[in-house]
């Protein structure tokens, strides 16, 4: 009866189909395009600020928008553009990447498809790992979209102070900020699983943003994992001169621990919790 069912030899041969499945679900969802649009808007707004800063007369004509643009830095050039984009990514990334993790896990409960993936030859832990890899891939693909879009906008605006070093350094910071943000967003997938839906997990995203603001104001942002990507990007310091404590090894360890612990707990929850 089971002639057409093959026994996979190793974990990779089980992971590959699970990854295909997750990517297919993402590919066919509107959420993919919504997140791309959201990030694109952030970059277009950053480009608009650069445009205003480049032409002070235009900035004055625009009134309040011009005044706000001044807050983020005084000059329109490639280093400032990178810093502004880094600020946008570190702020927006927590929300958008967080939503990606919430959606990838929460949709199984929202669409009630969770029961279809529980009693299969593909182990539940493999499904969870495929989901996390997909969310990370999706998030980092958005970072690359940001990079390409800002290069195009910067070139259109003919921003000065272009150099290969600036671009490579900016790309490195974008990917670094994105990777740290991915790690601190894994817990939102756990919350979406545990609460079997979207809303409580989305609430958690906003809770950590508020907590991050408070803890940063108290000068302890380097010990709160959800503010560390922004501190790592250095954007706030570069743009508005806000001096923050330098990140030490402990900060990176904390981010790593949040990612690792939430991964273990998510796998454990899917493997052992009752699916009523």
């Amino acid at each position: 009866m089971i002639a057409s069912v093959k026994a996979p030899d190793n974990i990779i041969s089980k992971l590959v189909p699970a990854l295909w499945v997750e990517l297919k679900k993402v590919q066919r969802s509107k959420t993919l395009w919504m997140t791309a649009l959201a990030f694109s808007l952030l970059i277009i707004i950053s480009g608009l600020f650069m445009y205003i800063l480049k032409d002070p007369e235009q900035a004055r004509r625009l009134g309040i928008l011009g005044a706000k643009a001044q807050i983020f830095g005084g000059s329109a050039n490639w280093p400032s553009f990178f810093n502004l984009v880094l600020l946008m990514v570190s702020l927006g990334g927590l929300i958008i990447f967080g939503f990606i993790f919430v959606w990838i896990f929460g949709r199984e409960f929202g669409d009630k498809t969770v029961y279809d993936i529980l009693s299969l030859p593909t182990p539940r832990v493999t499904v969870v790992i495929a989901k996390i890899i997909t969310a990370a891939y999706w998030s980092l693909a958005l970072i690359l979209l940001v990079f390409v879009l800002m290069l195009g906008l910067g070139a259109m605006l003919q921003l000065p102070e272009w150099s290969a070093a600036t671009v490579w350094n900016g790309l490195g910071l974008l990917l670094g900020t994105g990777s740290l943000t991915v790690l601190i967003c894994i817990p939102f997938g756990l919350v979406a699983s545990f609460t079997r839906g979207y809303l409580p997990a989305v609430g958690c995203i906003f809770l950590v943003i508020i907590l991050g603001q408070v803890i940063s104001q108290l000068g302890n942002g380097q010990y709160f994992p959800w503010t560390i990507p922004m501190l790592y990007s250095g954007a706030a310091e570069a743009l508005i001169g806000k001096v923050t404590a330098p990140l030490g090894l402990i900060s990176y360890i904390l981010v790593g621990l949040v990612g690792a612990i939430s991964l273990v707990f998510t796998c454990g929850w899917w493997r052992y919790a009752d699916q009523t």
């Binding site: 057409s4 069912v5 093959k6 996979p8 189909p17 699970a18 499945v21 299969l120 593909t122 499904v127």
Partner: peptide, 12 residues
């Protein structure tokens, strides 16, 4: 159904 086929590790 293709999703089910792949998660069921079917070669057919």
């Amino acid at each position: 159904l293709e999703i089910t086929r792949r998660l069921r590790q079917m070669s057919a």
